[in-house]
Simulated assay, not measured.
Amino acid sequence: MVCEVARRFDVTTGLIYTWRRQALAQDAGPAFVPAKLVDVPNNGCAAEPAVCVDFPSGVKVRIGAAAPCELAAAVMRALK
């Protein structure tokens, strides 16, 4: 199964195991949260798919589809 995933995404099996080990080592709490699709008014912004996250603190973040993954991850880590 790991070999199939590695082949599908063009990564090595060692990288998948490294990611798994890193994920298990983190004390990040729940890895998944409920998600729902909602219609958001454009408000004059470019119409592009985005991820909207509402943090328990009340902070709301909208990450555009063109944002680099590293940037999105850094924002999420900073606000958790």
Score class of each variant (00 low, 15 high):
P41Q: 08
V40L: 12
V38E: 14
I63G: 02
V75F: 01
V33Y: 03
V33F: 05
V51G: 05
Q26D: 11
R77K: 15
V2T: 11
E48Q: 13
W19Y: 07
R77D: 10
R77L: 08
C52D: 02
P41Y: 06
V5M: 04
A35V: 06
T13D: 13
Q26Y: 05
D10F: 02
Y17Q: 14
L24V: 06
P41L: 06
M76V: 13
A72C: 07
V2G: 14
V59M: 06
T13R: 15
A31R: 14
E48I: 05
A23E: 12
R77V: 10
E70H: 07
R62S: 12
V2K: 14
N43R: 15
C45H: 07
F32T: 07
I63L: 10
T13Q: 15
V59T: 09
A35T: 12
V5G: 01
I16Y: 02
E70D: 12
L79N: 07
V38G: 03
R62K: 10
G29H: 07
I16F: 04
G58T: 06
T18D: 07
A72G: 06
R20D: 00
R62I: 10
C69S: 13
D39L: 13
V59C: 00
A67P: 02
A25V: 01
V59K: 15
Q22F: 04
V11I: 14
G58I: 04
F32E: 14
F9Q: 10
V5A: 07
V75S: 00
A74T: 09
C45I: 00
A78N: 11
C3A: 10
E70N: 12
P68S: 13
S57N: 14
K80W: 03
V40K: 12
A25R: 08
C3F: 04
K36F: 09
P68Q: 13
A28L: 11
D10M: 07
A23I: 01
N43W: 09
A31G: 15
A65N: 06
P56E: 11
A31K: 14
C45S: 10
C3N: 12
R20T: 04
L37T: 13
A31W: 10
D54I: 02
K60N: 02
R7I: 03
A50G: 08
A25D: 09
P68L: 06
V61K: 00
V61H: 01
L79T: 09
L24N: 08
I16D: 07
F32M: 13
V11F: 07
P30W: 03
C69H: 08
V38D: 09
D27W: 07
A72I: 09
